[in-house]
Design a protein around this nucleic acid. Structure first.
Length: 547
DNA sequence: ATAGGGTTAG
């Protein structure tokens, strides 16, 4: 009805001077969403306060398209006495952030506000600040803040989260200090941002003080507790996080709270605790994904299978990220055919799905299959581009299986077809492949190429070069590689062992003995290798997921 | 008008 005719008019007027015409994608959004829009049933309010509450309720309900449509029609009927005011614009700014419409639209709204004088109040300016902050325009946001005459705590908080959003925790601390100087009374929003700054700067003592302020607030707030859990786990204090988690009695723990606790436990390798927390939670895709990472790292196939079952039961198998974690879990536990069947079941494979599958084959010694998956990835219809991690997986797979030609081809593709700059890690894998194939001159020409490209060799590159020299009896250049390696990492036991193996390979046992005595005087010992096995009946977590 | 959680490499 009204909405459909508006859509038609929007289309007709694209070439004329309506402000929205500068944002054709917005018109696309409007066109696509009209069928579901609640607006089709609504009559137009006849005064601005009614219009404002209607717009605000659309935004609250998460229907920014209807809000923007109503706003647009308001502007087109500018001859009537219903004119947008500061309240209208603040809702509209929020709606445009929800739609993630680019800064261009927001700037146009800002211009309209300037024209009508609706930009002068603190609330309007805060809404503008927030809009620019969400568009990533840090300069514009701070400019709006500087123009404010009266800054209340909400305005300060908006500035604070602006810096945090741009990953500038040091500046965020500056804002906090300034708030202290200006005697601004901190709110729970402030404390939340403060905790986030402490988490990203790993400022344990400061965070504990903020925790004190949270306690002083005297209310159990789930958002603040989540921030506390996240803070404590990111500084490595899982027990403090668990204390916060379990002591939260007065309010409902939501998914975010559980997810934060589960992933925090997994990050700190506290798998038992992670599963205990999982026992309380109604399964959600994110918590299961975090827990699967724990299973991969712990090689706990049993728990991983349980989580797979829960994911199937709850219909989470359409979640690409969860399936990626599942695929990786099976691969790391050595169940390649299971990994493949998960991979095949992913409807929308992303670059991580492909990389995990390539890596799964590679680490299992099935280089040919890895190369084949890589070829499929680059073929028809696949819109997914390999990234530098993908190439590293392919190169490493070729190295493990001695696929020299495939490795060379892959290294060529990386630069020539995909325009990527090889990292030192790529060179290390490549040098390893060439060295194992016995092409010592190609090894050194790859090294020189790397230097010419301006890539500085890392310890990993010297390790690969040294191995190649040991295998190919390249005495002189091997000593050079050994020298560089020991200069970069003189106290790493495995490096000294490697150098000593090189001398053994070229029959210089006097040097081997000297290196062993150096290790003894430095008190170094090569870390023992280890592997995990699961014995039935042991090592099993009693997870009771409420499935 | 402002706040909290997830996946890939040797």
């Amino acid at each position: 009805m009204f909405v459909r005719s508006l859509t038609a008019k929007l289309k007709q007027k694209t070439s004329k001077t309506s402000n929205l015409n500068h944002v054709p994608f917005l018109i696309d959004i409007l066109n696509h969403s009209f069928t579901n829009s609640s607006l089709s049933h609504v009559h137009f309010p006849s005064d601005i306060s009614q219009t404002n509450s209607l717009i605000a309720s659309y935004v609250r309900r998460g229907d920014p398209v209807s809000a923007l449509t109503l706003f647009h029609s308001l502007r087109r009927r500018a001859h009537s006495d219903v004119v947008a005011d500061a309240y209208t614009f603040t809702s509209i700014l929020r709606a445009s952030s929800l739609l993630r419409v680019s800064g261009q639209f927001g700037t146009q709204v800002h211009a309209q506000m300037l024209k009508t004088g609706a930009d002068s109040g603190t609330v309007a300016k805060t809404a503008l600040l927030d809009m620019y902050s969400k568009c990533g325009s840090l300069d514009e946001a701070t400019k709006v803040f500087d123009e404010m005459r009266h800054r209340d705590v909400v305005a300060w908080n908006a500035l604070l989260s602006c810096f945090l959003r741009c990953d500038r925790p040091v500046e965020a601390f500056g804002v906090l200090r300034e708030m202290g100087r200006e005697n601004v009374e901190l709110s729970e929003f402030t404390l939340c941002s403060a905790l986030k700054s402490c988490a990203s700067l790993k400022a344990l003592e400061l965070g504990r003080q903020v925790h004190g302020l949270v306690v002083c607030m005297g209310r159990d707030l789930v958002v603040l507790s989540t921030a506390l859990v996240d803070f404590y786990t990111s500084v490595g204090c899982v027990d403090d996080a668990l204390k916060v988690f379990y002591s939260l009695k007065g309010c409902w723990k939501d998914d975010m709270m559980y997810n934060s606790m589960v992933s925090g436990c997994v990050r700190s390798r506290r798998y038992d605790e992670a599963f205990r927390v999982m026992g309380f939670v109604r399964p959600n895709a994110i918590a299961l994904t975090s827990a699967l990472v724990g299973c991969s790292e712990n090689l706990d196939l049993w728990a991983g299978k349980q989580i797979h079952c829960v994911a199937v039961r709850w219909g989470f198998t359409f979640d690409t990220q969860l399936c990626n974690a599942l695929l990786d879990m099976y691969a790391k536990c050595g169940r390649i055919s299971q990994a493949l069947s998960v991979f095949d079941g992913i409807c929308e494979k992303d670059v991580i799905s492909w990389t995990c599958m390539i890596d799964a084959y590679g680490r299992n010694g099935q280089g040919r299959e890895a190369v084949e998956v890589f070829r499929e990835m680059r073929e028809v219809g696949s819109k997914v581009l390999p990234n530098s991690v993908t190439f590293l997986s392919v190169l490493s797979a070729c190295g493990h299986s001695g696929l020299v030609e495939e490795g060379k081809n892959c290294f060529k593709l990386l630069r020539e077809k995909y325009g990527l700059q090889p990292d030192p890690e790529h060179y290390a894998c490549y040098i390893d492949i060439l060295g194992r194939a016995g092409n010592i001159e190609e090894v050194w020409s790859a090294y020189h190429n790397m230097v010419v490209q301006g890539t500085r060799p890392t310890a990993g590159v010297w390790v690969a070069l040294l191995n190649a020299c040991s295998l190919n009896q390249d005495v002189e250049r091997g000593e050079l590689a050994a020298k560089h390696l020991l200069q970069l990492e003189p106290n790493k036991a495995s490096n000294i062992v490697l150098v000593s193996n090189f001398y053994a390979a070229i029959d210089r046992w006097d040097c081997v003995e000297e290196l062993r005595s150096i290790m003894r005087t430095k008190g170094l010992a090569k870390e023992a290798g280890n592997s995990w096995i699961n014995v039935p009946g042991f090592n099993r977590h009693a997870i009771s997921l409420s499935a």
